[in-house]
Amino acid sequence: MKIDSAHLERLHPNTREMLMSADEDRIAYLNADKWIPYPVAEQVLAKMDRLIKLPKKLRMPGMLIVGEANSGKSSIVGEFCRMYTPIDHEESINFPIINVLVPRGPDLDGFYGEILDQLMAPYPSSARTAKKEGLVRYYFERVGVRMLIIDEVHHILSGPIVKQKQFMNAIKNLSSHMQIPIVLVGIKDALQAVDTDSQIKSRFPATLLPQWQDNSIDYIRLLMSIESLLPLKKASGIYERKMAMEIHRRSNGYIGEMFDLINAAADFAITTGSEKITVKELSECGHGNSSKKLDY
């Protein structure tokens, strides 16, 4: 198949190289993790970067990242963690960032256990919560942890008020003792989770991840960036008005849902040989409802 030169020019160089590869290789490339920068994400990353570079002090500031499912929270956190990957020294490993999930309950014992597991730190299975907390502090100091990211923080609401307050106080105390910033991540219910105490609320100011607007320049630019990474042999023009509005309607304006939908349609286009995304591919690719998707 002859490929239009204008289409080739618009593709990312790595994508361009994939066009003549086997279909299964193009599909694998399509589904591999990719980071596409956009203004809101860059602003959040910049805030996180400022936090991790702060000098140690008793009352370290933190932040709360709030967005609905598929709003891009996990993608942003993942990109930040890639900026500060563990450093393997000759006799030790430095972990700049620890990223954990809040156990439902909330369960402090399970929380400390998950941190220790991520650090690959040994501890007896019979260890009590206080012992695990002490080990977390010890290993944080030993491996040079500079930031703790706690995802799904809204899960603390599944427990009684007393447990919620205990969990949030433990997080605050860990930040103060280790003098490191803590970043909380969750859906809008997370705003209620940090509202247990005025001091805690002031330490974790919220940054909201909004839905995309279908008439914004940033949305069109995002679609152009996404299309440049699609290993399709024909131009789809997903950034043109009709297609942009259709994608927005089907994704509800959430970036994770856009990626899932567009990738599913591109996969379908490769498999069927149409080699471009149209409303037909969007409709027939088998992409499910956004409410059933995992977070992005």
Rank of each mutant, 00 (worst) to 15 (best):
Q166S: 09
L208E: 01
T207Q: 01
G186Y: 01
G186P: 03
L222F: 14
G144S: 04
Q164S: 03
I161L: 11
G159M: 04
Q164I: 06
H155A: 15
L174W: 05
F140I: 05
L208W: 00
S175Y: 12
W212H: 06
I226S: 07
N215Q: 10
M224K: 15
M178L: 14
R142W: 05
K234S: 11
Q164A: 04
P181A: 09
I150D: 01
I238E: 02
I150K: 06
W212R: 07
D214Q: 04
L191P: 00
D197T: 13
S198I: 12
M224T: 12
Q211N: 02
M168A: 04
L148M: 05
Q179T: 01
H154W: 06
G237C: 13
L230C: 09
A170E: 07
I217C: 02
P160D: 12
Y239E: 13
S216A: 13
R221D: 08
S202R: 10
K188A: 06
L174M: 10
G237V: 14
N173I: 12
R203A: 01
I238D: 01
K233N: 10
N169K: 09
I226P: 00
A193Q: 10
V145T: 12
I150S: 01
A190N: 11
I220H: 05
L230P: 00
L157K: 14
P231V: 12
L157F: 11
I149L: 08
D151H: 08
M178E: 12
I226Q: 06
I161W: 01
R221W: 01
K165T: 06
M147K: 09
D195I: 10
R221E: 10
L229F: 11
L191W: 11
S225K: 15
L174C: 02
H154K: 08
G237Q: 12
K163M: 05
M168W: 03
R146P: 02
E227L: 15
M168H: 03
G159A: 05
G159C: 03
I149K: 09
K234Y: 09
G186D: 02
E141A: 13
P181H: 09
Y219N: 05
M147N: 08
S216W: 07
K165N: 03
I156K: 01
Y138T: 12
S228K: 15
E227R: 14
R221I: 00
L209T: 05
H155S: 13
D195R: 14
E227C: 15
I149W: 11
N169W: 03
P160S: 08
R146S: 10
I180W: 05
W212Y: 06
Q166P: 01
I171W: 03
A170C: 09
